[in-house]
Amino acid sequence: MAWEVRVQESPFDVGVEQARWFGNRHDIGAVVSFTGLVRDFNERPDVQALTLEHFPGMTEKALTDIARAAGERWQLEGVGIIHRIGRLAPGDAIVLVSAASAHRRDAFEACDFVMDYLKTRAPFWKKEHTASGDYWVSERQSDRNDADRWERQ
């Protein structure tokens, strides 16, 4: 299985990335891509922007481990992960996960798995900027429960 993980400030284009990752392969029957966007409401309303911080080196390693774990669990032809860092505005795309497989079920589940693990294991931190001040976003129990689903299976 081929994989690529990238942490970058610049925006990405889902179509371009998907074509670059999987465009010239004829054994792939399914590509499932998830794009995460910045919402304008979270712990407080009126989120004006958020700043994403990562741990250079460790973040890339964690993402690679997650991609590999997905490859061991499902029949995948490829996994691509892009996560943006720096200051982002509501509506901006923040994360892209694409999983490619011969048949759709593997790609669907692997994409879901990678996102659940990314949210609970990859060192990224969000600070939200709102009309009423800045704060670091807290972890969510629901994200942990989502990731735990895969441990039980």
Binding site: G36, M58, V95, L118, K119, T120, P123, F124, W125, W136
Partner: peptide, 24 residues
Amino acid sequence: TLASDDTRVEPGDEVAFFPPVTGG
């Protein structure tokens, strides 16, 4: 690499402390 209280440390090691992650 994620570690815990009883992980050994050696000269030259880098130990990082951080809050739970909130990416994605």
